[in-house]
Design a protein around this nucleic acid. Structure first.
Lengths: 208, 208
DNA sequence: GTCTATACTCTGATAGAC
DNA sequence: GTCTATCAGAGTATAGAC
């Protein structure tokens, strides 16, 4: 465990190593994946892997750093050109679900394996995760300011609840299932915004 | 690893051992908790712990069995005497959040440590988790049948999304935070049912 | 930069005296 | 039922030849 103030990692096949490790971490979990497995899957020997990362923890930290970059730029790309605030939120949800579930195991690891981080690495990564959540907050802020959202609603709670619904998708989504990722993103968006009640009960519920 | 068809476990201090183990698993994760730690925390030596559970996995499996019993009976207790279907859903959400976050680490372990299960134990526990989700499904079914829920909504998705929001609370809830567990449960319930849009936008959103 | 070989620690699991 | 003592193996990490 060498939690030195981890500086930037730089070597030729960094992304390849991280991508392969991420797949293993996702399938088996960080603790249940050995360095021998990782190096074997990368086509190198443990010594060579050690040349890149002095400690196993460092792989995880570097992976999470990259994952945060990826998810942030993914969401920004998907939303930056959308003007309507409600559609912007929808685009963000779709993008988040898609990035989490298809193509990028690092993001999954970021969201589900943070308990494996020790010491300073933990606080550092958590701070970067906050940076991501902050972007969501700006989207929701706009909705609030433009009075799309009811006065009595705390948008911090919306963010936490919305991200919960969205992240949990990773525990139940099946590629061969009934719904596409976009459909799932839309469903969460719809529920969050419109709710699920039929009109007459929606009116009645306001009085509760 | 002795994943024999694990039969009922029975010894005097079973619950004490499981409760202590659950706290450790919650704090550090299953893999990062050693049998030596567990036995020490239980005030016994590794040999004595081994007398109760032949393998580490067996502790986890037995814990999850008990956790499922607890969460099911907790939700049933909280909802069985509530007649109004919407209030029943609200009571269930409150109960789930409360059980998950206060007093029962086993339930947390059940929800977040299932990836540590191997082989037949995995499928068995998953089957029992389905039993729990099925109870939610009956609550939602009633809402649908009584036409509280719009025709175009799939209640399977509601269940998955709702449970996601509720379970994810475990990753961000702080006891000293702004909201009580009941308030959080209510907020999720409200969002799921009513949505968060202001009235004029709610009307407009129907056309999307 | 990459490999071989290995050091050292800790793990889960066990055997057997009491 | 509980303890002591120990096993075999896996884990991370390292040293040093090439």
């Amino acid at each position: 465990m060498s939690n030195q103030e981890t500086s930037l990692v730089d070597f030729a096949d960094r992304e390849k190593v991280l991508a392969i490790s991420a797949t293993l971490f996702r399938e088996k979990g960080f603790e249940r994946t050995s360095l021998r497995e990782i190096s074997k899957a990368c086509g190198m020997l443990p010594g060579s892997l050690h040349y890149r990362y002095r400690a196993k923890d460092d792989i995880l930290v570097d992976m999470m750093r990259l994952a945060i970059e990826r998810i942030i730029s993914g969401i920004v790309d998907a939303t930056v050109s959308v003007d309507d605030p409600l559609e912007k939120l929808r685009a963000a949800m779709r993008a988040h679900v898609n990035i989490l579930m298809s193509g990028n195991d690092m993001v999954y690891v970021l969201l589900f394996e943070w308990r494996s981080l020790h010491g300073t690495a933990h606080t550092q990564i958590m701070a970067e995760r906050d940076r991501y959540e902050h972007y969501w907050q700006t989207i929701l802020d706009t909705l609030k300011v433009k009075q799309y959202i009811r006065e009595d609603i705390d948008i911090n709670l919306i963010r936490l609840i919305g991200l919960g619904a969205v992240n949990w998708v990773a525990t139940w989504y099946k590629a061969e299932g009934k719904y596409s990722l976009d459909q799932i993103g839309d469903a969460i968006w719809q529920m969050l915004t419109r709710g699920v009640l039929a009109d007459e009960h929606h009116e009645a519920a306001k009085k509760l």
